[in-house]
Simulated assay, not measured.
Amino acid sequence: MTSIAELVSAAGGVLRKRDLVALGATDRRLTHAVRSGSVRRPRRGWYSTLSPADRRFQAVRIGGRLSGAAALFECGAWLQRRPPLTVSVPANASRLRPRRRARVVWDGRDICDRGSLTSVDPRDALVRAICELDFLDAVAVVDWALHTGLIELDDLPRLLAHLPRDAQRIIGWVDPKTQSILESLVRTRERLRGNQVEIQCRLSNGQLLDLLINGIVGLETDGREFHESSFEVDRRKDCVIIGDGYLPLRASASMVLRDADRLSRAIETLLTIHNDPPPSRPDILDLARPLPGRGRRPWRLGRVPCRADRTRFPCPA
């Protein structure tokens, strides 16, 4: 006979009592499972095999499901740090258990009808996460969603239609060709500095270059810290980058995540010592620039520069 713990684990770690009863569980078996410690009750009528430290367990204990960046973090989204706990509950929810440093949001029936017992649908979580995170992380999670196939670029405007009008302009900052959070962070930082960045450029030997900045600096992320086994291959690729007329630069994950200013100064130095004039940057001039946020959202996007602004300020700061 299948145990209660096996039934709950097969359902993702959390299951309601009525679902267990439909599977043949009795009150006696449920009581024995709780007393033996094979399952826990985060809330009356709910049974779980998850650890109490698990955020899914905590969300159910409060009375809802994970939402926003907290839900995307459990899915493996590209985030620099663990986000605060956000819990989605129905609009008519009651008897919630408060928890310090946890944010509770009330969602409509359309959102409540999607997702799992522990998390809202990842698409709904993505929309909320965009307004929770800072600008770099917000762009990164959208890049992640496009990279993993969670959403398609053509479907993104419809998905973001419920966001404020300025937040919808984040579409101009994402790139579906991005392969990692490191590429996303470097690309956004350099574009904010007025540089043109191309992703996954093909070299003369057919290999792909992670980032090409202003058509001058060929930047490869991860470096030897994660590519120890391919050290020789990476050095040969550097020779190809030089042979194609670019200045090679390699950055480890720790440099991108924790020493971004030094990396940016190195890029600017390489751009400065290069004798060729910088290329035109129409994609940068057409972007709405991030500004300090208002209310809960830590950022907002300004208007797209008009033609007169582009003449006065060819490289927006």
Rank of each mutant, 00 (worst) to 15 (best):
G243K: 03
Q168S: 05
I242A: 13
R235Y: 06
G115I: 05
R95C: 00
L20C: 10
L249D: 01
E268W: 00
N205H: 10
Q207W: 12
S264Q: 13
D154P: 03
W46Q: 00
K17T: 04
D19K: 00
V39Y: 09
I273T: 08
D54K: 07
L79T: 05
V142F: 00
C75P: 01
R103F: 08
L153N: 13
A69K: 03
D286S: 14
R235W: 02
D234H: 06
W78F: 09
R65S: 11
A266K: 14
D286I: 12
L263P: 00
S48K: 08
D27R: 10
I213F: 01
L271S: 08
I242Y: 00
R312G: 06
I213T: 03
L249A: 01
A53F: 11
M1P: 12
V60Q: 02
E183K: 08
E228M: 10
R307A: 12
V142G: 01
A145S: 09
L117W: 14
P164W: 05
D134G: 12
N205A: 02
P42I: 05
R312H: 13
H274R: 13
N214C: 07
R189E: 07
T86F: 09
L7C: 06
N275F: 09
V197K: 01
P292R: 09
T148W: 05
P176H: 04
L249I: 02
W106K: 14
S229Y: 08
R294V: 09
